[in-house]
Nucleic acid binder design. Sequence first.
RNA 1: GCGUCGGUGGUAGAGUGGUCAAUUACAACAGACUGUAAAUCUGUCGGCUUCGGCCUACGUAGGUUCAAAUCCUACCCGACGCACCA
Length: 397
Amino acid sequence: MNKINDELLTRGISSIYPTKEFLQQRISRGEKLTIYLGVDPTGPTLHLGHVVAIKKLGEFQKAGHKVILLMGDFTAMIGDPTDKSAARKQLTHKEVMNNLKLYKKQTSKLLSFSGKNPAQIKFNSKWLSKMKFEDVLNLASKMTVSQMLERDMFQKRIEEGKPIFMHEFMYPLMQGYDSVAMDVDGEIGGNDQTFNMLCGRDLMKSLKNKEKFVITMKLLEDNSGKKMGKTEGNMASLCDNADDMYGKIMSWTDGLIVSAFELCTNISLKELEDIENLLKLSTTNPKDLKMRLAVEITSIFHGEKKAILAQKSWENTFHNKEVPDNIEEFSIIKGTLLVEALVLNKTISSKTDFRRLVDEGAITYKDEERKITSHKEIAMSGVYKIGKKRFCKIIIK
RNA sequence: GCGUCGGUGGUAGAGUGGUCAAUUACAACAGACUGUAAAUCUGUCGGCUUCGGCCUACGUAGGUUCAAAUCCUACCCGACGCACCA
């Protein structure tokens, strides 16, 4: 019992507010706690970065606590001015519901939505959209401007002379109010959400005189913290098929291995320690550990069988340089130029790109193991390889 | 309301009349190497091309000029400062 609690309250956790002991006491007293995790339903997919907190939520659910997955549909609708690229479009109710459906599917391996203690799903528009201006003002009166300004993000913007908008001040309040509206015992989230979650803690105290606990999770990132940008692009989506998920994990930088084992897999803490030590030895090839990692994670979402198949296919393709089994096929009319065929099928983005690739010696006609050297090559029936990971099979009609 | 500054490629961010399809960094792509789709190194990185060039792009619309991302005018959007503060 004690041991389980200990892992529940340490693994992957960055910090617990007010204290770990506080939470531990409540749990060992046998209390059934209500904990929630807020997610932003803006996109249709969740990625492995989200898994960290969802997984922890699932662990609490297994331990018998009540868990809520909160869809931040209201907060998502407001849009974030810092994100000028998107100028975030307003989500329709339909889109939100659709995303929810996908989320449910994607998280079903970590959370249980049925049984006697199902994870609940709530929407924060339910209470936030009904608030009157006076309610908002009342909320706003609980926080001071300097409290808000303490936030690193705001400090940085002031230094850079970049704007801070009023509604950005409201954000933490809105998110914080979620805790009050649902009357939860605690919240869980990435440590990048610390400020918002603590804001909810303050509100809880002043409005309900309740001590809300907050668990912040470590972020999935390079041990140097530097390479996050690099990994972001490879951040496997939970919608990816087993092969892609496996492959994307393999392309993670080595520094991510330990933290990913801790945050995304179910291996024991003992094994985790072993892996950490192994990595320090110069005789260890990090690749082998990464392969193990990729199988572990892929297994969670696709089952062990598919994960092992994905591993085999990966080894064949990249280690033995063979053509993978399930590649894209398309048919063309006889005599079509290879450029036309590939661009039409969107395997390559433009004709210029095709010429470049040919000049770089990136395209190979696998059936004859021959590099394509001419821009005017006629497409043949068979398999073409572009770069290291793009394959396609052409069929002549 | 007045004033100041600014809006550039996937992002950040240079450039302030021709040498600008636009420095650089990140992302992306390719090659070499390897331990892999890691790391490192090298190259590429708007589109079309008969490889000579051509076309489209630096907030929008006009204008000046042989020539404009760069100058002018109007407009749109934004930030900052000052004033106002019912």
